[in-house]
């Protein structure tokens, strides 16, 4: 059993200034997950008639990308390839102080407490993160052969869960890793190549419009990404963007 001191960011809504509130939580089982620890805190707060701490979470198995807390200076805590929901309390020491903050970025306004609005990521995908095919009328699946190596790289990029940790940890609040992962997934497949130049330009334009910062190649995003998405995807997008701007007009 652990006794912990939690410093949690509490903020009533988007307008409220917000502040840290300290909670002492005792008797936390070591097998509990981090979010279950917060559940226990919340259950106690409810019984005391206090407002429980709001945070995003859903699948609790590391795939939906809903959860995302900045724990002791790291998005999803300091362990590699781990989402907040996969972090367990046995990784903490008895008596430890844990500081829990929301994602902080201009593009992710705080909704309440530890919950932020990440709809900007959806808007990025809407700008072109898909192959523009309609339902039906598509060729047989095996009429398109894909190099296995490319398919594997594509899948690596496609494992992005859209949690926003890359933006949250980037000192520039840049979404390049997120955008380039989606771009690369499609760029590496023949199906996606048809509109790859349009896609890269549209997605980059939307990214700038939404107020994300510029990538300065610190690679903090890759270090903190719970799915280990590589920054080589960013290089691919830079390259294709350049090609789109220079090579494509020449072809026409």
């Amino acid at each position: 059993m652990l006794n912990l001191k939690l410093k949690i960011w509490r903020q009533k809504n988007n307008i409220d200034k917000g502040r840290f509130v300290e909670y002492n939580v005792d008797n936390i089982p070591e097998e509990a997950s981090f979010l279950e620890m917060l559940d226990i805190l919340n259950e106690r707060l409810v019984l005391q008639g206090e407002d429980p701490v709001t945070f995003d979470h859903d699948c609790r198995e590391g795939i939906c990308g809903a959860c995302g807390l900045y724990i002791n200076g790291h998005p999803h805590g300091k362990y590699k390839n781990t989402t907040t929901c996969q972090l367990h309390m046995r990784k903490f020491k008895n008596g430890e102080t844990i500081t829990i903050e929301p994602w902080r970025s201009e593009a992710f306004p705080i909704i309440k407490d530890l919950m932020v609005d990440r709809s900007a990521l959806d808007r990025l995908i809407q700008s072109g993160g898909y192959v523009s095919v309609r339902t039906g009328g598509v060729p047989d699946a095996n009429s398109i052969a894909v190099n296995k190596h490319d398919a594997d790289l594509s899948m690596d990029a496609a494992s992005c869960i859209g949690c926003g940790a890359c933006v949250a940890t980037c000192k520039n609040g840049s979404a390049m890793l997120f955008v380039s992962a989606k771009f690369s997934q499609l760029a590496l497949l023949p199906q996606g190549q048809v509109e790859t130049y349009e896609r890269v330009q549209k997605m980059v334009a939307r990214m700038d419009e939404l107020g994300f910062g510029n990538c300065s190649n610190t690679y903090a995003c890759m270090a903190e990404c719970p799915k280990g998405i590589s920054v080589t995807n960013i290089a691919r997008m830079n390259r294709q963007f350049l090609a789109a701007k220079i090579a494509e007009p020449l072809k026409k």
């Binding site: 200076g73 903050e101 270090a223």
Partner: peptide, 26 residues
């Protein structure tokens, strides 16, 4: 300047070095 603005007004209270990220790059 744009990066500073994109980061937002609120800064993290606790910041720890990310693994493998060089001091120079930041």
């Amino acid at each position: 300047f744009q990066n500073y603005r994109a980061r937002g007004k609120q800064r993290y209270a606790v910041v720890e070095k990310q693994e493998g990220v060089s001091w120079a790059s930041k």
